[in-house]
Write a protein that binds this DNA or RNA. Structure first.
Lengths: 146, 146
DNA sequence: ACCGTATCATTCGCAAGCCGAATCATATGG
DNA sequence: CCATATGATTCGGCTTGCGAATGATACGGT
C-alpha cells in the first residue's frame, strides 16, 4: 500500500504511460480527419487569431522545420492559409480557413469523447480533481499559456 | 472557466503533454546512470523474479526485437544476465544481477525526486488525489498489472 | 524415431518524427 | 549601400519503434 514502493506507482511513470495511452487513443480518433494530435495544438492556437510560423514553433514547442511540415499538411487539407506579411515579407502569416475552424470544432468534440472514455472508470469527483491537478501542474511548468 | 472550452484544457491533452514532460525530466535524471525510462520498467519487472524475453515484451508492451536491444544495453551495464532455460533451450531467462538491483533502487529514488519536482507546485492533498486517480485509470485500462 | 509445424530469440531493413545545419529571401542598422 | 540579423525552407541524420525473415529448438502426429 505504500505508494512509493514501486516504479509503476510513481506519478512520473503513470503520467508517462497514461500520456502515451491518451495520445494514442486520440490519434486513432483523429485519423479519419487526416489529422494527428500535434496538428490540434496548431489549430487551437490559430483559433485565437493569425500567427507567424516562428511563434507557432515557439508556443507548440517544436522546431521551425517541424512547423513547416505540419502546415504543409494542414494546407493540403485546406485548413490553413499562408500569406506573406506585407509589412515584413519574410514572415508567413498563418490563418485558419473556415474548413480549419470546422476541423478544430471536431477535434474538440473528439477530445471530449476521449476524455469521457478515459475517465469513465473513475468517479466524477475524482475526474474533477484530476483535471484540476493536471491543469495546475501544466500552468506551473509553463506547458500551457495561461 | 468552462473546462472544456479549449483543447488545452482537455484531460487527454494535459495528460499527453505532462506525460512527455515527466518522461523527459525522468530521462534527464536517468542519463548519468546510462539508462533510459523504458529500461526502468524492465528492471522493475525483473525485481519480481526472472522472466523470459517474450514475457517481458508482452508486459512492457513492446516488440520482442525491442526487448533484445534493451537487454543488450542492460547486459552491457552488467545489470542483467541472460541464461538459456535448461528445460526449454529456446528461451532466455533474464535475471537481475546485484548491479541491476542497485540500479533499480536508484531509479526508484530518481522517480521519487521527479515526482517531488512535478508535484511541488500543488498541495499535498491535490497530489494524493492525482496519484489515486492516475492509478485507478491505469489499472482500469490494463496499463499496470495489479 | 521422424517429419512438419510452432515458438523463442535475434537480425535486418524500413518508416515516422524530430532536430540542427545550410540555404535563400528579406529586413535593418551603420 | 553593405554587413549582419531574421524568418521560412530544405536537407541529411539520428533515434525509436515495428514487422518480416532467419535460425535454433521444441512438440505432436504418425
Amino acid at each position: 500500500m505504500t505508494a512509493e514502493e514501486s516504479l509503476t506507482h510513481s506519478v512520473s511513470f503513470l503520467l508517462s504511460k497514461l500520456g502515451q495511452e491518451a495520445n494514442g487513443r486520440f490519434a486513432d480518433r483523429l485519423a479519419p480527419l487526416g489529422l494527428r494530435p500535434r496538428h490540434c495544438a496548431v489549430l487551437e492556437l490559430l483559433s485565437g487569431g493569425p500567427l507567424a510560423q516562428l511563434e507557432l514553433a515557439r508556443v507548440v514547442g517544436v522546431t521551425p522545420s517541424v512547423v513547416v511540415d505540419m502546415l504543409d499538411e494542414l494546407e493540403e487539407l485546406d485548413a490553413v492559409r499562408r500569406t506573406r506579411d506585407t509589412a515584413d515579407r519574410r514572415r508567413q502569416v498563418i490563418e485558419l480557413t473556415p474548413v480549419g475552424r470546422e476541423l478544430r470544432r471536431q477535434t474538440l468534440a473528439l477530445a471530449r469523447q476521449n476524455d469521457d472514455e478515459l475517465l469513465s472508470t473513475i468517479s466524477a469527483t475524482e475526474a474533477a480533481a484530476l483535471r484540476q491537478a493536471l491543469g495546475r501542474i501544466a500552468t506551473a511548468t509553463g506547458l500551457i499559456s495561461k
